[in-house]
Nucleic acid binder design. Structure first.
Length: 422
DNA sequence: TCTGGGGTCCTAGGACCC
DNA sequence: TCTGGGGTCCTAGGACCC
């Protein structure tokens, strides 16, 4: 059996752990640049119409009228709280698959069937006691079914946030309860197609001929079909796989026209992704750079372009990567547009130890020591405190807007929570 | 005025190899 | 008229996830 443990309204819940004074009030967390709503607690969800991913400006009046509390996103805090949850899960099972920042699968094959429900409650209660975060637990034979059980644990009130799909009767009942649109892995496009041929519930979906599913929805659809029928086919991944691409792309705080400022933002992002690359001991053999104007704007002229450049030799050296990214950016930049976003992607990622030289270049150790020191300084003193001068110093002109970011309570001594006597 | 960011997997088709 | 058979690698595009 497999459990899916998922934190409720994760980002909003993290904020509330440190602001108990806000409990009971509607709380939302905003995306980068405070652009969209990306998380809302149940009080905020209960207010009519706060759909996720709504641009804030469209619903600002409504939010203010309802005295909703806003937070800018604070990924440092969420990442660290997530780690705490994972550490607790590891005390319940030796096999834990971290699926996302707020969800993990855990293997429960050693727990007797009749104890699963109690075990689920223990997990839920322990996480709440040690972190203050509420979670839901779904337990079933396969990953797709445990996702479904998790959904039921939250939607069906008497489940009290723990739901076990134990017998085959349970399974059929669950399938008939679930609309096909909410099955994990079946998105908007595929839902529309199966609804068109008369499928309404997950149960209906499992009654489709496998050949049709395979043909119309590829092997991905076939896996879902099998898992819903109780056949476990998805791998349990306990070791995080090395990333095959590492990228970042963020909208600027304001629109930018001049190449040199965009260049600085681009270089800064390269610095970020290069650091991730080094932490997984890999090198990139190509770099992809793209540049776009604000495509929502009806007035501005639109332009976007991208370019992929192959490197002479795979590398994880920030200095080389920044230089190459800048050259690439120069090739796609055109004057006279108001740019909204620049992005970089590192591709062709290979393990550091396999990097080969070529006729003209051999891999060199010379800068490794420097890079190592720079990385260590940044761990100690904060993100990108030390970086290539190519990155520049005009960060303020392009950086993200985060007006309501909470303190980094758990990772910065200066921002630690303080308790006062009244 | 203001509209997120970071990923994965699959398939088809083209270019190329022997 | 008839035009091989077995591959790999890469890219673009589609669909999906949180």
């Amino acid at each position: 059996m497999i459990a899916l443990v998922d934190c409720n309204s994760f980002y909003a819940s993290c904020e509330l752990v440190f602001r108990p004074d806000l409990i009971g009030r509607p709380v939302v967390v905003l995306s980068n640049n405070d652009g969209c709503v990306i998380a809302a607690n149940k009080e905020a969800k209960a207010l009519a119409d706060i759909p996720m991913f709504q641009p804030v400006f469209k619903i600002k009046k409504e939010l203010i009228a309802n005295k909703v509390v806003f937070f800018s996103s604070n990924y440092t805090l969420y990442g660290e709280m997530s780690q705490r949850v994972v550490n607790i899960l590891k005390t319940f099972s030796s096999k834990v698959e971290v699926y996302s920042i707020d969800e993990s699968f855990i293997d429960l094959s050693t727990v007797p069937h009749e104890e699963l429900e109690t075990f689920g409650h223990q997990i839920k209660n322990t996480i709440y006691r040690l972190t203050g975060l509420p979670v839901g637990v779904g337990i079933a034979k396969t990953k797709v079914l445990s996702k479904l059980a998790n959904k039921m644990s939250k939607k069906i009130p008497n489940k009290n946030h723990v739901c076990v799909i134990n017998s085959d009767d349970d399974r059929v009942e669950a399938l008939k309860w679930s609309p096909v649109t909410s099955i994990w892995g079946i998105g908007k496009k595929h839902s529309e197609r199966v609804i068109a041929i008369g499928v309404a519930t997950a149960y209906d979906f499992t009654q489709l001929p496998l050949a049709w599913v395979r043909k119309e929805m590829t092997v991905v659809g076939e896996c879902i079909w099998r898992e819903l029928r109780g056949e476990s086919v998805m791998e349990f991944i306990t070791e995080p796989k090395k990333k095959k691409a590492i990228g970042t792309a963020k909208s600027f705080g304001k629109k930018l026209e001049s190449l040199d400022i965009i260049e600085e933002a681009c270089s800064y992002y390269v610095g970020e992704v290069a650091e991730v690359l080094r932490t997984q001991n890999s090198c990139a053999s190509a770099i992809h750079v793209f540049l776009v104007t604000n495509f929502f704007s009806m007035r501005d002229k639109q332009y976007s372009n991208s370019i992929t450049v192959k490197l002479a030799m795979p590398t994880n050296d920030t200095f080389v990567l920044v230089t190459e990214a800048k050259k690439a950016l120069h090739l796609i930049y055109k004057e006279g547009y108001k740019y909204k976003k620049v992005g970089v992607n590192l591709l062709g990622i290979t393990p550091e130890e396999y990097v080969q030289g070529n006729l003209f270049k051999i891999p060199t150790e010379s800068k490794k020591a420097l890079t190592k020191v720079v990385d260590e300084l940044n761990v100690k003193f904060g993100k990108l405190k030390v970086s290539s001068a190519l990155v520049g110093t005009r960060v303020k002109e392009w950086e993200l807007i985060k007006e309501e970011r909470s303190p980094r309570y758990t990772t910065q001594w200066k921002e630690i929570l303080t308790l006062k006597d009244k």
